[in-house]
Amino acid sequence: MTRGPVDIGDPDRLYMVTGGRTDADDAFDLVTLIVSECEPTAGMQSEHVRILEICRHPTALVEVAAELKLPITVVRILLGDLHDMGQISARHPRAARSVAGLPETALLQEVLHGLRNL
């Protein structure tokens, strides 16, 4: 039952996909929901095409990463590009914590209700 870290394999591919950048954009949370604002066009980078296809319906960053089989960090960079070009919009998690440090009771009530109805 011991599992080591999984190797992502080919660093060259990562370099190509991101144009050599390694500074991921932390503006996108793991559960930020991404929505395409346009259809893919000819000549677009294939990863951008895939993202625009996947995000026709709202899709969390982690799901995009899992679908593309790319590390989160790389997906953040790709999403940052698309966002800069206005091709996707991002629905960020509502500030999960109030000033006091805990989520609001109203939000938690909604979560409880949803869970109890499972």
Binding site: M1, L33, P58, R91, P93, A96
Partner: peptide, 20 residues
């Protein structure tokens, strides 16, 4: 993977943590 509802707007997280 089934898509989310088009009105989905808020993602929330819970972490499940534990040994191997």
């Amino acid at each position: 993977r089934t898509p989310l509802a088009d009105d989905a707007e808020t993602g929330l997280k819970i972490v499940v943590v534990g040994g191997f």
